[in-house]
């Protein structure tokens, strides 16, 4: 039963996530909330592993999420669920490729889909920010995890502002922050 459910959830993800890269992130995040299969922290970890390994990010995240939910078989089924709509849609589009490419409806839909997709990723991303930065509690000075904010600012500078490190592959930044996490015991253990 869980396998059927997994297939269906990832089929929907494949069918409605548009734009590649992190487009599946809001769907995974929503899926975790709805089903309880994985947490926001799990999704963030899946994203990190997916960016650091070969293969499409969306495919990697599906495999990982499926495995977390139902083992090896779950990983396979989630991945197949994710790619099935792609295969069906592309085979259909391939038959009318020229008309699709020049279609004004497609153009105008994408004009709206792009900001929608960006906003969905931003909203899912905000949850990861809250998870990482927010302590809560009664002491305003301790609401925010300052050491996390500091490391975040550092990584942002490396990936945006420093000419020499701007072009670095994400895997380098991920490895660097893993080392920082271990050295400064960011997990609190």
């Amino acid at each position: 039963m869980i396998c059927l459910r997994l297939f269906w959830e990832f089929f929907k993800t494949g069918l409605f996530s548009v734009g590649g890269g992190l487009a599946t992130l809001p769907f995974l995040y929503g899926m975790g909330e709805k089903t309880g299969w994985f947490t926001t922290a799990d999704v963030a970890d899946m994203l990190a592993v997916s960016e650091s390994t070969p293969g499409g990010i969306g495919v990697n995240m599906a495999t990982y999420a499926g495995y977390t939910t139902a083992g090896v078989l779950g990983g396979v089924i989630a991945t197949l669920g994710l790619v099935t709509p792609s295969i069906i849609v592309i085979l259909l589009v391939a038959m009318v490729l020229d008309r699709f490419r020049k279609s004004a409806v497609v153009d105008r839909s994408f004009y709206l889909l792009r900001p929608v997709s960006t906003a969905l990723i931003a909203a899912a991303g905000l949850s990861v920010f809250v998870l990482v930065l927010w302590n809560g509690g009664s002491e305003p000075l301790h609401w925010i995890r300052w050491e996390a904010l500091l490391l975040m600012a550092g990584i942002w500078l490396l990936s945006n502002a420093v000419e020499f490190t701007k072009k670095l592959h994400p895997i380098v930044l991920i490895a660097l922050s893993a080392v920082c996490g271990i050295v400064f015991s960011l997990g609190g253990t």
Binding site: A44, D45, L47, A178, G188
Partner: peptide
């Protein structure tokens, strides 16, 4: 503990990766 700490660090990096991706999009 070492894996937990590593992933606590990695999640911070994931925030930046998502932010960069959103800015690009």
């Amino acid at each position: 503990a070492v894996v937990k700490n590593a992933f606590a660090g990695i999640r911070i990096c994931v925030c930046v990766l998502i932010l960069n991706s959103v800015v690009k999009l």
